[in-house]
Amino acid sequence: MTQAAVHRPLIVGDLDDPHVQAVRVALTARGARPVILDLESVMTAGLSISDDRMVLRIDGESLDLAERRGGWLRRMHRAPWGLGIETGSVEALELGTWHSAFTWMLDGEGISWVTSPQTLRRAEGKLEQWKAARRLGIDYPRTLVTSSAEDVQAEFHDDVIVKPLGSGQFLQGGEVKTVYAEKMAPGDPRLSNLREAPFIVQELVDAQRHLRVVTVGDQVWVAALTTSSADPADWRRTVANHVAFVEAPDAIPCVATGATAIADELALGYSSQDWVQTPEGRTVLLDVNPSGQWLFLPDAIGLGVAGALADRIMVK
């Protein structure tokens, strides 16, 4: 790896993303000059692929992705990208072509990633996470993926959590909407909508504390949010919760051990995971976010994670 590549690591993400900025600051403090780009910026500046070069033109300079360097993939593109585009239109064809070319470049051998793009795409799959947890013996909610309301009633007798299997975002009236996890009874009439697309249906786990567990390699940070039965099933729906997590060094050790185990099983150099702790002491893994957020956690965790990511990028 050349000195130029060592000092020009790649961050794929939106320059305005505070997580991107946090890692940029940490890299700069270590003497690096990271290149930050995403699909939107590449579409503006252009690219070229030849037998021995993969060149992006960013801010007036050429960046050859065939030259080895460390990299971190935060987000391939911004949330609204491609939403609302008519299938089969010329614009859809153009966007698909840009996406294919950029994805192919990132999948090349030149970049040594914190987590490779191929691994990231696979690990984002909820079915993959479910099966990985089962392989490892990690406590995971009883789960059904179905398009049948009748199957929900046959499988569950108590309240369940229903959440999307695929993307949780869509465009409505020009505004990006989020599909949150919803608590429902097995006989809820809304479950008839499952026939439109399969959803994940899980047992409702009584959460006394929500745990956000962040891993970078074998390093682990745990923060906790105490909730009550009156709170929404998805803690994100309460604005105050986004600043209410506290460091939790007393978290049950098996949470940290389980978090690193599943991150390793999914080959994730970084992960942001959601666990819950029940009043009875049961600890349950709910979700693995291969490129999720961490800056809403206490400052010490935020700085620690950004620094650990920068160190991992620099040694790649």
Rank of each mutant, 00 (worst) to 15 (best):
D107H: 09
Y140W: 12
A154N: 14
G125H: 02
V145I: 15
M105C: 08
G168V: 04
T103D: 13
G174V: 03
S148E: 11
Q153M: 10
L93G: 14
F102Q: 07
D159S: 12
P141E: 06
R134L: 15
G84P: 07
V176L: 15
G108T: 07
K177I: 12
D139F: 02
Y180H: 13
R121V: 04
T146W: 02
Q153Y: 01
P141C: 11
G168M: 00
P80F: 05
S167T: 14
W98I: 02
K177T: 06
L95T: 08
V162H: 02
W104F: 09
A132W: 12
G137H: 06
S148D: 14
T87F: 09
W113A: 07
T143N: 07
V145W: 00
V114I: 14
L136D: 10
P80E: 13
K126S: 05
Q172G: 05
T146V: 03
S116G: 14
V90Y: 09
K163S: 00
G82C: 12
M105D: 07
K177V: 10
R121L: 07
G110Y: 13
G82S: 11
A123S: 15
L171F: 08
W104E: 10
E155D: 01
G173I: 06
L165P: 06
L120D: 02
V160E: 03
K126D: 00
D151Y: 00
T119C: 08
W98P: 07
M105P: 11
E175G: 00
T115Y: 02
V90S: 10
V162I: 13
G108V: 11
E128A: 12
R135L: 13
S112G: 12
V145S: 04
G168Q: 00
W113Q: 07
V179Y: 04
R135T: 11
I85H: 05
A92F: 10
Q172N: 04
K177Y: 00
L106W: 03
A154F: 00
A123V: 03
Q129T: 10
G108L: 05
V90R: 14
W98K: 01
M105F: 06
A133T: 06
E94H: 15
W104M: 06
W113S: 11
W98A: 14
S148K: 08
S112C: 10
P80G: 05
K131P: 01
F102H: 03
E86V: 13
T143Y: 02
G82E: 11
I138E: 01
W81F: 15
V114E: 08
E150A: 12
G96S: 15
V114A: 15
Y180L: 10
W81Y: 15
A123K: 01
R142G: 09
G110L: 09
R142Y: 01
A92H: 14
T146E: 03
R121N: 08
T146S: 13
G137F: 02
T146G: 03
T103R: 13
L127N: 04
P117F: 05
V162M: 12
A133C: 10
E128Y: 02
T115S: 07
K126V: 00
E128N: 05
D107G: 05
E155M: 04
E109N: 10
V160M: 03
R135P: 06
V114C: 08
H99D: 15
E94N: 14
L127W: 04
G125K: 07
G82W: 05
A132G: 10
L106R: 08
A133W: 13
L144S: 02
